[in-house]
């Protein structure tokens, strides 16, 4: 049986990784974690630590000559340089737009460089604890594919703890399922439980053995530069309204 270990609790003698702390006497957990029978440590709480090749979700917060600043809902700054805009030649994104992008580089003070940006539109963002993301993705994307299948929502996962659920399907059921996985991530037999929950919510039979498995995460289409159907005015107008709100509320 895997067991829950608490900060300061000894977790064996050899393991040393980012989630443990060691002194001359032993190795200890630093965050609340699950220790599996073979001694592996899986964190149950914790902030996002940026890593190369992660897909993350963020918002274009500033447009500059060399690229875009992206707000990842994390304390660290992310930058999307113009030369990483795939095969897009000119200006592509506008202020306030939400994107999913890949981390191509992180330096030692956690400045993040992004690439492969794709726009996200027409949906809601759900915030979950970043350490629960692997569970929400499931083995070979099976969990997220199952939620997608049951609710007809497109779901894109940012490793920084933001999940995009399109409003095309039964997004309320999808959000409930995601929150349920977040809460019960440390229990076994979760796939079965989530399947039962979704069947009840959506009145739809879920054939567990037919849920698609894939080795790469689902991603939205790339943006085509010719085809800019953006209502810039609308976006900016909203942004302005929010900035006024921010002036009052988010004075930090």
């Amino acid at each position: 049986m895997p067991k829950i270990v608490m900060p300061g609790q000894e977790v064996g003698q050899e393991q040393k990784n980012a989630l443990t702390y060691s002194d001359e006497k032993g190795v200890y957990a630093t965050v609340i974690s699950l220790q599996t029978e073979d001694g592996k440590i899986i964190p149950l709480e914790g902030p996002y630590q940026p890593a190369i090749d992660d897909y993350v979700i963020g918002k274009i917060s500033e447009v500059k000559f060399g690229g875009y600043d992206v707000d990842l809902n994390s304390p660290y700054k992310a930058f999307l340089p113009v030369d990483k805009l795939n095969n897009l030649n000119n200006k592509t994104f506008s202020l306030g737009e939400v994107i999913i992008a890949k981390i191509v580089n992180v330096n030692e003070v956690r400045d993040i460089e992004l690439g492969d940006p794709r726009p996200l539109e027409g949906g809601i963002l759900v915030k979950v604890s970043p350490v629960k993301i692997p569970r929400i993705i499931g083995k070979k994307n099976s969990m997220v594919n199952m939620i997608s299948f049951a609710t007809n929502c497109k779901i894109y996962i940012g490793k920084n703890g933001l999940i995009f659920v399109s409003s095309s399907g039964d997004y309320l059921a999808a959000i409930k399922a995601i929150k349920m996985i977040e809460k019960q991530a440390h229990f076994s037999g979760l796939t079965q439980k989530v399947a039962e929950f979704l069947e009840k919510e959506t009145n739809k039979k879920i054939p567990l053995d037919q849920i698609q498995q894939s080795s790469t995460p689902a991603l939205p289409a790339k943006k085509e530069s010719q085809n800019q159907k953006f209502e810039h005015g609308q976006k900016r107008g909203f942004q302005k309204g929010f900035n006024n709100f921010k002036k009052r509320h988010f004075r930090r």
Partner: peptide, 25 residues
């Protein structure tokens, strides 16, 4: 910081136009 609230604000607007609320109320 709280970019989620900002982004979801827009969705909430669109939902309300259809007479729906984000929490199903």
């Amino acid at each position: 910081m709280e970019i989620i609230r900002e982004i979801n604000g827009e969705l909430i607007k669109n939902l309300l136009k259809q007479g729906k609320r984000a929490d199903g109320r």
